[in-house]
Design a protein around this nucleic acid. Structure first.
Length: 604
RNA sequence: GCCCCGGUGGCGCAAUGGUAGCGCAGUCGAUUUGUAAUUGACAGGUUAGGGGUUCGAAUCCCCUCUGGGGCUCCA
């Protein structure tokens, strides 16, 4: 049984002794924070039991941004309950009860928790030699390994946040408990900052911005998890896709296209019907043949590879496709653009010889960092996942592939973590999480070896020795899916796209109707030069037009009145509020041309 | 899929058993304005869909669809 409580270690005594924040090293500060949050969970359970004496306690660990505690109660908690619970908690904190650790025998523990079935289950699961400990404060007692802060008054700032259902031990076959989430910090200020971050995240929510900026929508009559892109969102997406295509051609990829459906036999050969059927839509029948919507693009790219016998001289072959796939996702997991049922992967499959593997992986990494730089993602974390217990393929190939992944990372001095045994059964992989402007991590990039499909489809190439060899196959997606990536981008930029991605780069604002004609002529020049602009011809005041453009987060507002018209100029206002005054049109266009270049980073 | 909370004009919200309303957006008109909301009028909803309770349902009950917070899942 994995430990469900913070691991009992030699730190316990130390943790109980230090109630201050004067800790050296981040880990210890984090350990203290966890102990403090876990202590807050105890205080919460205490309050819940006061209000709901019949409640059965689950577990209450600290989590990344706070803590939770699960309870079985006769009715779900309401927001009013949370207020009540929080009130009681604050009283307990004020009282400053000490947390006291006791160790006891298994029999005593079983007696103590006899009316707490979930606690009893935890006790049963503890290995025989394990020390069983409890922690008390005031009249409350909980089975617990600790550590805790010294007393309830060592919880400087806390707040309850939400209620949710959660299965006991995460098992959907077991009872659903009511989980209360809360958070706690070392000071009121840090708590306020955390709450402010939550609000900022809400303001940047891609679902809200998607509606406000008219980027995309979902519709009940179309179906859940299916996105329609509006002209503005479509523009952003096509700008991303155009850049993506140019880059891929530049780096030696070939762009291919494949259909959305394929016959059942294809998916039998690929193994999807055996291993992935629950993720696929039900088949369609055409002329008594079964067809499936594709959940992946690989079998199609393999078909292209197999269409001819390839010489080793032709390899590597890199087939890239913005391929739209459909996957059945359980209804409860769908989320805006981030988790959908139909999405377009920026997919590619590389077929190569064993000695090309490392260079190919390196090439993928270079491509990745060029893309991430362009979009302004500065922080990312890389994980290398190695062979799991259950796997297909030759262990030597695994070894070679894993080494090449590792080598490509090390050659670029990229730091990464290793997830031993975390690879897919068909091959090792590198995953890259990008960190957005709010410090949240999103998994987009994945580079995976596949030892399964080349075998299943019997892929071969003519090798230099005159024989037939099986190529290595690398599956990779850099942005992941266009849907998710655009969702990440929207939140990363807070809807204020940089100039090169802005669906509308400038709005022309005529002060009076007599300026419309001049605005139209400026618009024509901007468009002829490849810029994206609009004229606001509504019968509104200039201020209203500025406000509208501002709320649409258009980078430049070009105000035009008599003065500008005479001088062949535009009065430039940036969306950050900066007023650049009247600028000759030529000068403004030069500036626009410069600023709308795709950013290039240092190269990763 | 499971638990909980929602679904009312395009959007954001009000009306808690008794005539469905407000703001924004839209349309039409007046205004022609110098850096974040000029003004008047009009139009727009069989309250997600279906069934039930009731003299009467947006409101109460059941089912379905769908959104959200979680759990689980994420070849």
């Amino acid at each position: 049984m994995p430990p469900t409580y913070p691991v009992h270690n030699s730190r316990v005594g130390e943790m109980l002794d230090h109630g201050s924040l004067e800790t050296e090293g981040v880990d210890e500060a984090q350990a203290h924070r966890n102990a403090m949050r876990h202590s807050t969970a105890h205080v919460m359970a205490d309050a819940v039991l006061k209000l709901f004496p019949e409640a059965k306690m689950g577990i209450g660990p600290p989590v990344e941004n706070g803590f939770y505690y699960d309870f079985e109660v006769s009715r779900p908690f309401t927001p009013e309950d949370l207020e009540e619970i929080e009130k009681l908690m604050k009283e307990t904190i004020k009282e400053g009860f000490p947390f006291q650790r006791e160790e006891l025998s298994r029999a005593d523990a079983e007696t103590m928790f006899s009316d707490q079935p979930y606690k009893m289950e935890l006790i049963e699961g503890l290995p025989g030699e394990e020390v069983i400990s409890i922690y008390r404060h005031d009249e409350f007692v909980d089975l617990c390994q600790g550590p805790h802060v010294r007393g309830t008054s060592d919880i400087p700032a806390m707040k309850l946040l939400s209620v949710a259902g959660a299965y006991w031990r995460g098992d959907e076959k077991r009872p659903m408990l009511q989980r209360i989430y809360g958070t706690a910090f070392e000071s009121e200020q840090e708590l306020a900052e955390h709450l402010e971050r939550l609000e900022e995240a809400e303001r940047r929510d891609h679902r809200t911005l998607g509606r406000q900026l008219n980027l995309f929508s979902v519709h009940e009559e179309i179906g859940p998890g299916l996105i329609v892109w509006h002209p503005k969102g479509g523009r952003v997406r096509s700008l991303v896709e155009d850049y993506w295509k140019d880059l891929h051609y530049r780096l030696g990829y070939d762009i291919v296209y494949s259909p959305h459906i394929g016959r059942a036999q294809l998916w039998e050969t690929s193994g999807h019907l055996d291993f992935y059927q629950e993720g696929m839509f039900a088949p369609l029948e055409v002329d008594e043949q079964q067809y499936y919507l594709k959940p992946m693009n690989c079998p199609f790219h393999i078909a292209i590879f197999k269409n001819a016998l390839h010489s080793y001289r032709e390899l590597p072959l890199r087939f890239a496709e913005l391929g739209t796939v459909y996957r059945y996702e359980r209804s409860g997991v769908l989320h805006g653009l981030m988790r959908v049922r139909g999405f377009t992967q920026d997919d590619a499959h590389i077929f190569c010889t064993p000695d090309q593997v490392e260079d190919e992986v390196g090439g993928v990494l270079e491509l990745t960092f060029e893309l991430l730089d362009a979009f302004g993602f500065k922080d990312y974390s890389i994980a290398l996942s190695t062979r799991p217990e259950k796997y297909v393929g030759d262990p030597e190939m695994w070894e070679h592939a894993t080494k090449s992944l590792q080598g490509a990372l090390e050659k670029r001095s990229l730091s990464f973590t290793v997830d031993e045994g975390g690879g897919a059964f068909y091959g090792p992989k590198i995953d890259i999480n990008i960190t957005d402007a709010l410090g949240r991590a999103w998994q987009c990039t994945t580079v995976q070896f596949d030892f399964n499909l080349p075998q299943r489809f019997d892929l071969t190439y003519q090798d230099a020795e005159g024989g037939r060899s099986q190529p290595y196959m690398v599956h990779r997606a850099i942005l992941g899916s266009m849907e998710r990536f655009l969702g990440v981008l929207i939140e990363h930029y807070g809807g204020a796209f940089p100039l090169w991605l802005a669906p509308v780069q400038a709005v022309l604002i005529p002060i009076a109707d007599r300026h419309i004609e001049y605005c139209e002529s400026v618009l024509a020049k901007l468009e002829a030069a490849g810029f994206r602009a609009e004229v606001d011809t509504r019968g509104e005041r200039m201020n209203q037009k500025i406000r509208t453009a501002q709320m649409q987060k258009v980078p430049y507002m070009l105000v035009v009145g008599d003065r500008e018209q005479e001088a062949n100029a535009v009065a430039v206002r940036h969306r950050d509020g900066e007023d650049l005054g009247a600028v000759p049109l030529d000068e403004f266009m030069a500036r626009l041309g410069e600023e709308s270049q795709i950013p290039k980073g240092s190269g990763g």
